[in-house]
Design a protein around this nucleic acid. Structure first.
Lengths: 185, 185
DNA sequence: TGTACATCAGTGAACGCGCGTTCACTGATGTAC
DNA sequence: TGTACATCAGTGAACGCGCGTTCACTGATGTAC
């Protein structure tokens, strides 16, 4: 296998990744609604039939975008929480930051009705949720009054997810200070 | 003007409302992505060109669905908060309950990129937000530590919006006890 | 009371377009010998 | 080292379909006289 840059024009060499990037960009621009396999192929500069080789259909492509999104979100939450004095706050920030910098992926990650079944999607989705639960477990005082930790997890997940959603839709201003104050409350 | 039930078959008499209901149902079933003016017309039992008479295009139709959603959400939040001993909790419950019982409307209300401009949309959207701000103002202790009330509003909005979103996507179970515990925390 | 007319909600045929899918194909690669 | 072959990623023409839009129209209603 040659390095990617040296591959022939005919065999792209990394078309799957290129199609995922094109899809995320296209989703961000026109919404998950409006994308088509043909528009993704055009953006990636390949023939219109190429995406079906890799993803089967639209739902398969969107599931792959979502799975890759969860994988990278999980990655950045781990990086943020590791060695942080306030892992829970760090994870909240990372969650919102991921949504802001990856709006295409975020727009499909919680829209299961759009997504075909995909083992990677299950695995990475569950792993991301697990990060939040672990961070709550190691943060003294996060779960107060003997509350069930799953309720605490649901509350914090709701808070960061709502904040991320409202910020990227423009309902709340994309202001780092505001985001920090909301998360610290 | 005759009562609706007596109107002729040719002139529907309340087609605008019927189209909005059909659109909300269709959005709930297949997503805002997949609807078309033709599919809405089919569901409402009128010719495929009728929706354009009322809404112009898809974005106009979706904006009208969203505006009607905000109007009714506002209505039910007012009803829930009035004479309630805990208006803030009542509003949170009403917000989540609205999303659960009106998933079609909720699916477009915070997707401004899908919506055409519509004066009703602005008015009712702003009014719904105002309900939350007012409820915070009259709830002693809602805003703690001299925090800016707009930060409190952003936090509570994020919490209820995230909870509603995660519940209707199936990410969190649709369990009234869980919802109450999350909102009370 | 009757008649003529203006209004406008809704119709239905026609159009061009982008879509997903199919399928025989091409061309680069790796491997067997 | 060279040759033959299997593999498979990607191509491109062709198809049928549902879409939004247009436009001349139909039919019910309200109003003027």
């Amino acid at each position: 296998m040659l390095p990617m840059a040296e591959r022939s024009a005919y065999h792209h060499g990394d078309l799957r990744r290129a199609l995922l990037q094109a899809a995320a960009a296209e989703i961000h621009e026109v919404g998950p609604s409006a994308i088509s396999l043909r528009s993704i192929a055009r953006r990636a500069g390949v023939s219109h039939a190429a995406p079906a080789h890799h993803f089967g259909d639209r739902a398969g492509l969107l599931a792959a975008v979502a799975a890759e999104g969860f994988r990278r979100m999980n990655e950045s939450m781990v990086a943020a929480a590791t060695d942080s004095p306030e892992p829970l706050l760090a994870i909240g920030r990372a969650y919102v930051a991921f949504a802001r910098t990856n709006p295409g992926e975020f727009a499909v990650m919680f829209r299961p009705e759009l997504l075909g079944s995909d083992p990677d999607l299950e695995v990475h989705g569950a792993a991301a949720h697990q990060r939040l639960v672990e961070a709550i477990a190691v943060t003294p005082g996060a779960t107060c009054n003997g509350e069930d930790p799953s309720v605490t997890a649901a509350r914090l997940w709701s808070l960061v997810h709502g904040l991320a959603t409202l910020v990227i839709t423009g309902s709340l201003p994309a202001d780092d200070d505001l985001i920090d104050q909301v998360l610290r409350g």
